[in-house]
């Protein structure tokens, strides 16, 4: 299994300092659990954040120069060229759910999958690879899980609830190597602001207030017998639909 992990130079949400992105650390953990060859790829200059990713167990990281091509095209060309694993094809590309510090739209994995013409799934919490088919488990809200079979090489986004966060080690950070590949001509980062796009400091806005069904108290039973209380609780839970009676 040859896995590429997409890494981004993230920023911490609270402090605003350069920091690794949590979702991508989860992707490293999942790739290490899966076994095989693992390579981290970052498009852009190799900053200090890349070293920190190495501390989570990633031995090799490539900082890819995009040159004149766009970021998506450069990365797709690198994956197709086979330069990642000495000519052997890439089986899997793992990503976080979204970056943290850039546009953070979560669109990049989809654009990459489209450029490579590979299938893509996101919110993955478990993964099993057998002969050309990847069996994944996708997390939905409220603990619901969904299995899926994905054919061939694919792009997978790792969910935050995935239980694969590796431990950070300073020695691994010093040991890991960050290589550069391709034209490292410093192309200016993509300008998010434009004629019809403005960037300004974030302002937290209130969410809609929900109309609550029972604002001030509901049904109250004072000193019932334990049997009556238990029956009332059971009937109430069945009425709400959270307790299945047939099980």
């Amino acid at each position: 299994m040859r896995t590429i992990i997409l890494l981004s130079a993230g920023y911490d949400t609270v402090s605003g300092r350069p920091a690794p992105v949590a979702g991508e650390i989860g992707a490293i953990g999942m790739a290490l659990a899966l076994g095989g060859e693992v390579l981290g790829v970052h498009v852009g200059p190799a900053g200090p954040t890349m070293r920190e990713y190495a501390g989570y167990g990633l031995e090799r990281i490539v900082a890819l120069g995009a040159g004149q091509a766009g970021v998506v095209e450069a990365l797709a060309a690198y994956i197709r060229s086979g330069a990642a694993f000495d000519g052997a094809p890439v089986d899997l590309v793992l990503t976080g759910r979204r970056g943290s510090g850039g546009e953070d739209s979560g669109l990049f994995p989809y654009a990459l999958a489209h450029a490579l013409d590979w299938p893509i799934m996101r919110d993955i919490v478990a993964i099993q690879a057998t002969q050309g088919v990847v069996e994944v488990e996708q997390a939905l809200p409220r603990g619901v899980r969904r299995r899926a079979h994905v054919k061939g090489p694919c792009v997978l986004g790792v969910h935050e609830m995935a239980p694969f966060t590796p431990a950070f080690s300073f020695a691994a950070m010093r040991r890991g190597e960050v290589l550069t590949y391709g034209e490292t001509a410093d192309s200016p980062p993509a300008d998010m602001a434009g004629a019809d796009m403005q960037i300004r400091p974030y302002r937290a806005r209130p969410r809609l207030i929900q109309a609550q069904a029972s604002g001030t108290g509901g049904q109250v039973m004072i000193d019932p017998t334990p049997q009556a209380a238990a029956q009332a609780i059971r009937d109430h839970l069945v009425m709400l639909g959270v307790l299945q009676t047939g099980r």
Binding site: M221, P224, P226
Partner: peptide, 21 residues
Amino acid sequence: ERAGLSIIADAQLVMPALLEV
């Protein structure tokens, strides 16, 4: 006050009854 159904009783007595039900 927050609850839709409130039982004013000892939880320690209600639990075995609920398990029984």
